[in-house]
Design a protein around this nucleic acid. Structure first.
Length: 329
RNA sequence: GGACGGGUGGGUGAGUGGCUAAAACCAGCAGACUGUAAAUCUGCCGCUCCUUGCGGGCUACGAAGGUUCGAAUCCUUCCCCGUCCA
């Protein structure tokens, strides 16, 4: 409990680029990697999956420019990505990069995963599909509010914090209480184990909203022109789409409906643009409250911005190399 | 030219005398989120004032008049739109 008081063994730096979708994280990451001897690590819940390429905006070979990229294409569709699973994989990559003396550069789109990596997760049971199925079944057989009532019995404090309509979070909380035989709020209070041995330099991209939305619109068009529908067709044919949670991914669900004839491509395009806008907004909300961040108003592919970021990062790296100073919290 | 149907807040669209600044949904904005997170959920959403209150004022349901204590809702005329008949 008091290891936060003892001086950490010299922490190695890692860089994290936070930004909404289409803000140019990948390009900035490659730029920094080239100049600082780094490698890129994606922190994106969808890019983990093989076969989902166009719609998840994975950087192409050309865009990667010879820089190794990690945590892209590491899961097959039936496997479920989770925050904890991501953390484990990311830690392994970090250890690998440390051994090879490469600077880790994260491109962060999924705020939860990044927080799980840096701050850790409470020591709670993992998900149980069987239990969830039973809870969902039970919820459908009872009046609304059923799950909330169950949770209130198990953990009134948690029930207070979760909205009655938020089935997903209610189920997770009940699941944890049941499996751990302890209230989830108590487990959360007992703390999380933060990442040790690393010091994060956080960069946030904050382009103007209008311009970002414009890019989102254009990118959706480009993705569709680039064969996105065909990609979805292949995933459907191989059965990968059905057995994955990709029906939750923006675009994949819409294009699936196009293939089923329930929607035309033009409607899909607009639905994709809109869903992406909302997603970007949620990302911005999440990143806004991230602390200790160097914020840059612009896109990651802007040369001037890239140089500004490089300067800030170089300064931070130099400070860090001088050793941990007493002022650092 | 005639017969119907219709014009409601950014959009779709309820509302047919007071409980209506006007349902619902969408869009938009703000926010929450410790193992589904590109997910899930919450709040706000005409303008304005303040002593921020189930508060006050103003504007609003195509336009202008009228009826009424009171009208998005009833009446008259006009202007648009749609369908049908000529």
């Amino acid at each position: 409990m008091n290891h936060s008081l003892q001086r950490p063994p010299a922490a190695d730096p890692l860089i994290a680029i936070l930004g909404p979708t289409a803000s140019g994280k990948s390009m900035l990451a490659v730029f920094l990697a080239q100049r600082l001897g780094g490698e890129v690590i994606a922190c994106d819940s969808t890019q983990l999956y093989r076969g989902f390429d166009i719609g998840t905006a994975k950087p192409s070979e050309r865009e990667r420019a010879g820089i190794p990229h990690h945590l892209i294409d590491v899961l097959d569709p039936p496997e479920a990505a989770t925050a904890g699973g991501y953390r484990d994989m990311a830690i392994r990559v970090l250890e690998d990069l440390r051994r090879r003396r490469k600077l880790p550069i994260f491109t962060v789109g999924t705020g939860l995963y990044f927080r799980a990596l840096l701050d850790g997760l409470a020591d709670v049971p993992q998900r149980s599909e069987e239990l969830r199925a039973r809870l969902r079944q039970s919820a459908s057989e009872h009046e609304p509010g059923h799950l909330r009532r169950i949770l209130r019995r198990l953990d009134p404090e948690a029930a207070e914090k979760i909205a009655a309509a938020d089935e997903q979070k209610l189920i997770r909380a009940i699941e944890v209480c049941l499996l751990a035989r302890r209230p989830i709020s108590e487990l959360h209070r007992s703390g999380r184990r933060a990442l040790e041995g690393w010091h994060a330099i956080k960069i946030a991209l904050q382009p103007e909203r209008d311009k970002l939305y414009q890019r989102i619109h254009q990118r959706a068009g480009k993705m569709l022109d680039g064969g996105w529908l065909e990609e979805v067709g292949r995933l459907v044919a191989s059965g990968a789409l059905e057995e994955s949670k990709a029906l939750d991914f923006i675009g994949y669900r819409e294009l699936h409906r196009v293939l089923d004839g329930e929607m035309d491509i033009e409607q899909a395009r607009m639905a994709i643009q809109q869903a992406t806008r909302r997603y970007a907004k949620r990302q911005m909300t999440w990143f806004r409250r991230e602390t200790g961040v160097h914020r840059f108003a612009g896109f990651g592919d802007d040369a001037a911005l890239q140089n500004d970021v490089l300067q800030v990062v170089e300064r931070e790296l130099a400070d860090a190399a001088r050793g941990p100073e007493e002022g650092s919290v």
